[in-house]
Simulated scan of single mutants.
Amino acid sequence: MTMTHVVYDITGCPGLDQLSGDELIDAMRQTAHRLGCTPRTSLIDPFEPFGHTCVLVLSESHITVSTWPESGLAHVDVFTCRAHVEPGEAIGPLLRLLGGQIANTQQVPRLPPDNALHAPPPAKKGFCSKAGPITCSLLPSPEGVERIATNPCLAVNGFLGLVLDAIPEHEMADKVELRNFRTGLRTFAEQVVLVADAVDCAYENDHLAVSVYQDPEYDWSLGVVAVVRGDVEALAEDAICLLAKQVPFIPDFGVRAEGPPTPKFCADSVLREAQGYQFRVVWLGSSDKMCRSLSGSLEDA
C-alpha cells in the first residue's frame, strides 16, 4: 500500500467570501473521483464573517480545504492510500473554483500501515511515472478541453474507473453512444495494458504515453489518447482492429458548432515520426465536440 499526502497553498484567490461550503465540497468530490477514491461523508464548518474549513472523508483517507478570503488564500490537503493520477492533476476542479495558483506544494512522507512495525521504506509516489520526452511531446493539446490525467496507472479496472466515474449513471443508461464508448474504452484499456506489460518501464523508456481529456463544462464529454512507439506498434494495431469492429472510424466529425456537445463514440489513429522513431497515436472520444477537438489537434500537429 502506498500513502500519498500532498498539501497545496493556493494564493490569489478572488471571491472566496462568495463561495459556499457546498460548492467547495462539490469540487472536492470531483477531485476524489479523479484520484479514483470513494467519498464517504463530508463536514462544512463556516467562519464569521466569511471563510470555511471543509472536510471530505474518503474510504482511502481525506481531502480538506481551508479558506482565508481576507488574504485570498486557500490550503488544500490531499491524503490517500490510493491515487490513480498525480494529485496535482486531480485538484483541477478546486483550482478552477478557487481561481488562484499553486504557490507552494509539500509532499508529506507517510508510513504505510503494512510497514508500521518495520523501518519505513523509501517514499514512493502513488501514481505512475512520467512519460518519456518524445512520447509525451506527441500527446495533443486540444482547444476547449482539459487534460485531467497523464499516464494513469494501467490496471484495467482502475483505468476504466478513472474515466467512467465522470459519466453520470443516468447518462450512461440513456445514451447508446455513451454505452458504446464504455465498451470501446475497455478494449482500449486492455490493449494499452498489453503494451505496458510487453515493455518494462514502458513510460520511462519512451514506448508509451497516455492522457485523459475532459470538457470543463460537460463532465461526460471525455477523450483518451495513447502514443505507442513503433517497436510495439503491433499491439496498437490490434487495438485499432478491435475498435474498428465496435465503431466505424469517421474521419469527418462536422463543422464546429455552438452549444452543448452531443454523445458520439468515435475512434481513430494516426502515424507520427519523431527523432527517428515511428509512433502510432490512438484516440477515442465520447462526444462530437471531443471528437472534433482531438481530431483537429492531431491533424494540426
Rank of each mutant, 00 (worst) to 15 (best):
S141V: 11
E143H: 12
G276Y: 12
S137A: 14
S141F: 12
F249Q: 00
A166C: 13
P122K: 00
A209R: 01
C201F: 14
G285K: 02
R82F: 15
R256A: 15
T105G: 05
C241L: 09
V57G: 08
S137H: 06
L271I: 15
A27E: 05
V247Q: 14
V55M: 13
L111Q: 03
R272C: 14
F79Q: 07
A74V: 14
R96Y: 10
M28I: 08
R34E: 06
V228Y: 03
P261K: 01
N115C: 11
G15V: 05
F50M: 11
S129F: 09
L284V: 10
K289M: 15
E48K: 07
V192S: 04
T31M: 10
T105Q: 09
F47S: 10
H84Y: 13
Q18K: 03
W220H: 03
D45K: 04
S295A: 11
K130M: 14
C153D: 12
D114M: 05
A123T: 07
E48Y: 14
D200G: 09
A202Y: 10
F188A: 01
P39F: 15
G285T: 11
H75L: 14
V156Q: 06
T11G: 07
I63M: 11
V6R: 00
L94P: 07
E273T: 11
M28C: 13
R179I: 11
P49N: 07
